[in-house]
Simulated assay, not measured.
Amino acid sequence: MYIRVKRSKTTYFIQCEPTETSLDIKQKLHDLIDQPVSDQRLILVSTGEVLEDSKSLADLKVENDAVVALTLRKG
């Protein structure tokens, strides 16, 4: 499966498995955007729910082609 992670005017297509955690997705994003995992927050757009790092995508009800918003903590 894949998810779309949107940040400002940029969309990242992330290949992932339902068993992966939100933290795994943040690590993949870290490799792409060079932002520390601790400064990232992922929000499922359809529900507005913040994705917890320790839960799997399946537990968080993230489905294939889901849109996830990425917010970054200001330093």
Score class of each variant (00 low, 15 high):
25 I>L: 11
64 N>D: 15
1 M>G: 13
66 A>D: 15
46 S>I: 05
11 T>C: 08
73 R>G: 09
42 L>T: 03
30 H>N: 14
48 G>T: 01
69 A>K: 03
33 I>D: 09
59 D>I: 03
44 L>Q: 05
4 R>I: 01
47 T>V: 00
63 E>C: 03
8 S>M: 11
12 Y>H: 15
63 E>A: 11
6 K>T: 12
7 R>M: 05
11 T>W: 05
4 R>D: 04
38 S>W: 06
71 T>K: 07
37 V>S: 10
70 L>A: 11
21 T>D: 10
16 C>R: 06
57 L>Y: 01
29 L>I: 07
68 V>G: 00
45 V>N: 00
41 R>Y: 05
11 T>N: 11
33 I>S: 03
59 D>P: 01
21 T>M: 01
68 V>L: 04
34 D>H: 15
56 S>F: 06
26 K>W: 08
62 V>W: 02
5 V>L: 01
14 I>K: 02
6 K>P: 00
58 A>C: 09
50 V>W: 03
24 D>M: 09
74 K>E: 13
49 E>Q: 14
45 V>Y: 05
53 D>I: 02
67 V>F: 13
68 V>H: 04
23 L>T: 10
41 R>K: 14
32 L>C: 11
9 K>F: 09
75 G>E: 13
17 E>P: 02
10 T>K: 15
2 Y>C: 04
35 Q>T: 15
55 K>A: 09
73 R>M: 10
23 L>K: 15
40 Q>A: 07
9 K>T: 12
9 K>M: 10
54 S>C: 08
7 R>S: 11
74 K>C: 08
72 L>K: 06
57 L>K: 10
73 R>N: 11
46 S>C: 08
26 K>A: 01
22 S>L: 05
25 I>Y: 06
65 D>V: 02
56 S>P: 02
28 K>W: 07
25 I>N: 02
40 Q>W: 03
20 E>K: 06
69 A>V: 02
56 S>V: 06
15 Q>R: 13
17 E>V: 03
3 I>S: 01
6 K>Y: 11
52 E>L: 12
54 S>M: 05
60 L>V: 06
44 L>A: 01
19 T>H: 06
46 S>T: 12
57 L>H: 09
3 I>P: 01
21 T>N: 13
19 T>E: 12
45 V>K: 12
5 V>E: 00
46 S>G: 00
15 Q>T: 10
37 V>E: 14
67 V>P: 01
15 Q>I: 00
63 E>K: 15
28 K>M: 09
73 R>C: 09
23 L>M: 11
34 D>A: 13
8 S>N: 15
12 Y>A: 00
3 I>L: 07
4 R>Q: 13
37 V>Y: 10
71 T>Y: 02
63 E>Y: 03
1 M>P: 05
16 C>G: 04
14 I>P: 05
28 K>A: 02
10 T>M: 06
4 R>K: 14
64 N>Y: 01
16 C>M: 04
54 S>V: 05
24 D>L: 04
23 L>R: 12
6 K>C: 04
23 L>V: 04
28 K>D: 09
43 I>S: 01
14 I>Q: 04
7 R>L: 04
1 M>T: 07
74 K>L: 14
1 M>K: 08
24 D>A: 10
52 E>Y: 03
5 V>Y: 12
70 L>H: 06
53 D>R: 04
58 A>Y: 01
62 V>T: 05
